[in-house]
């Protein structure tokens, strides 16, 4: 008896611990359940439904007609689709490189001490904070053929062109403006990420390098840059994901630039509103993004 009692108590304690664990598990699930239900029914389910829709001729009224892979065939045999893919790649690559480089440059300046630094740091976040719709019109005005400052400088003052024209008006030039606009809007993000990493670099490395007589380029190349490698890697991947899916930044500035999101939007919500093809397009866009990321992770980050 006397020997058994502690074992029994031990068993009871294990049972109690077990009950506690089950209770903890229940509690955890109870709290996460609303989020899981909401994300499941309004994000996961729609994506599966999107795959299903892409196999149908979707009617706005009445029943959908099953057409197998016809939507995909139609999409892939359309040259304007391939043009949209090309535009998207140009857009994503240039904006990603642009934001990262400008963000890096600005961060290297802002890490130094100067008067009104707090104010300056707050001001340069404005492009990132302000709603897209509130800044596109100012950019459109800047390139306005009659009143805009761009034409005033290039045509009236520098005589670079022989007549006034709207730079956002033609698809080839509009891409350039869309890229500059996106860089302007999102450079504060990469600047912030890089700045916060810069501020956490230990200064003793720089002091030692100075004693050894290192130039500023050498200090950047051998101390700063290795510290920034990882943060720049993550900025690039985030920017690729976001810019690949960008819609508002492009469409609200000009509907002349048909990146994939805009192309799909026009297919699915204007004219005959071919939502079946739209669904196929959205899925292809998603697969392209995944492919791009896998390639990037393997080849560039070498994970």
């Amino acid at each position: 008896m006397a020997v058994k009692a502690p074992a029994l108590r031990g068993n009871r304690m294990i049972a109690k611990a077990h009950a506690l664990r089950i209770e903890e598990e229940r509690f955890g699930w109870k709290l996460i359940l609303p989020s899981v239900i909401i994300i499941g029914s309004l994000i996961i389910y729609p994506i599966i439904y999107n795959m299903y829709l892409s196999l149908f001729d979707v009617k706005l009224q009445g029943a959908n007609i099953y057409i197998g892979l016809q939507n995909y065939k139609n999409v892939l045999s359309d040259p304007s689709f391939w043009h949209a893919v090309l535009t998207t790649f140009i857009y994503v690559i240039s904006t990603t490189i642009g934001t990262t480089l400008i963000g890096l440059g600005v961060a290297l300046v802002m890490v130094k001490n100067f008067p009104f630094r707090g104010l300056v740091r707050a001001l340069i976040l404005l492009p990132y904070i302000a709603p897209v719709i509130s800044v596109v019109f100012s950019w459109q005005f800047f390139f306005d053929p009659v009143n805009g400052l761009f034409m005033h400088v290039t045509y009236d003052m520098l005589h670079l062109f022989d007549k006034r024209f709207n730079l956002i008006g033609s698809p080839q030039n509009a891409v350039i403006v869309a890229i500059i606009f996106n860089i302007w809007r999102s450079f504060p993000f990469s600047y912030l990420m890089i700045l916060s990493r810069l501020q956490s670099i230990d200064s003793s490395g720089y002091e030692a390098a100075e004693i050894d007589g290192a130039s500023s380029w050498q200090k950047f190349r051998y101390i700063t840059f290795p510290e920034l490698y990882f943060v720049i890697g993550s900025i690039v991947i985030l920017r690729v994901i976001w810019n690949f899916n960008k819609f508002e930044d492009v469409y609200l500035l000009t509907d002349n630039v048909k990146v994939l999101s805009v192309y799909t939007y026009f297919k699915a919500f204007t004219g005959v509103m071919d939502q079946g093809q739209g669904a196929a397009l959205a899925l292809i866009q998603f697969l392209l993004l995944i492919g791009f990321i896998l390639f990037y992770v393997k080849k560039v980050l070498k994970w």
Binding site: I47, Y49, L53, A268, A279, A282
Partner: peptide
């Protein structure tokens, strides 16, 4: 997931 992927469904 971009918005466009959820928009149509």
């Amino acid at each position: 997931f971009g918005g466009i992927l959820l928009l149509i469904p």
